[in-house]
């Protein structure tokens, strides 16, 4: 029993600490690496929720592809100012003040969630340990009930790729 609390506690702590560091890391490359760490720990939590497929996808897409893309963008975009982050004088106050903003937003959001949770007619008590959801079922429903969204998603990806290429291709070719 305590194992679940313990592991959840550790993972949650790592996630929140790395997310906080993403905001306050001085160097942008450090921020990217902290982000990768937070993605990894979120994938750990997915594993705790017995969703291996989504955990693996999370690592594959977020920790692998998106982090690398952001790192490449950092390298290409602001080579000059990577070393020195522009330290505006007011930066310190802005962070402290907005810290308050974070707490407020979190509370408002949590309050709203609890309201939705109570007012809706979702069964209140958790379902006992259910059969695990196998990848085969996910695959089957993906291609039967969700074929249209699947095709739309693939077209979306295609558009994103073409857009990215056109925007960034140098004129030299």
């Amino acid at each position: 029993m305590t194992a679940q609390y313990l592991s959840f506690g550790v993972l949650a702590l790592v996630t929140l600490w790395s997310a906080y560091k993403v905001v306050t890391a001085r160097l942008i490359t450090h921020a990217a690496l902290w982000m990768a760490l937070s993605f990894t720990s979120v994938s750990g939590i997915f594993l705790m929720l017995q969703q291996e497929f989504i955990a693996a996808l999370q690592v594959l897409i977020y920790a692998g592809a998106i982090t690398t893309m952001i790192i490449f963008a950092i390298m290409l975009s602001s080579i000059r100012e990577i070393r020195v982050e522009p330290q505006q004088q007011t930066f310190g106050q802005r962070i402290r003040a907005s810290g308050l903003l974070a707490v407020v937003v979190g509370l408002v959001f949590a309050a709203f969630m609890t309201y939705v949770y109570y007012v809706s007619e979702i069964p209140k008590e958790a379902v006992p340990d259910p059969g695990l959801l196998t990848v085969r079922q996910v695959g089957a429903t993906l291609f039967t009930r969700f074929t249209v969204p699947f095709e739309v998603a693939s077209i979306l990806l295609l558009l994103a790729m073409i857009g990215a290429i056109i925007l960034t291709a140098k004129e030299t070719e």
């Binding site: 693996a56 996808l57 594959l60 592809a65 690398t68």
Partner: peptide, 22 residues
């Protein structure tokens, strides 16, 4: 023995890229 064996391998290898960069 995860039932997402191959995707797990693919996911894990994406860390190699981050390690090279680090």
């Amino acid at each position: 023995d995860y039932d997402i064996g191959i995707i797990m391998i693919a996911a894990v290898t994406s860390y190699a890229v981050i390690a090279t960069f680090i």
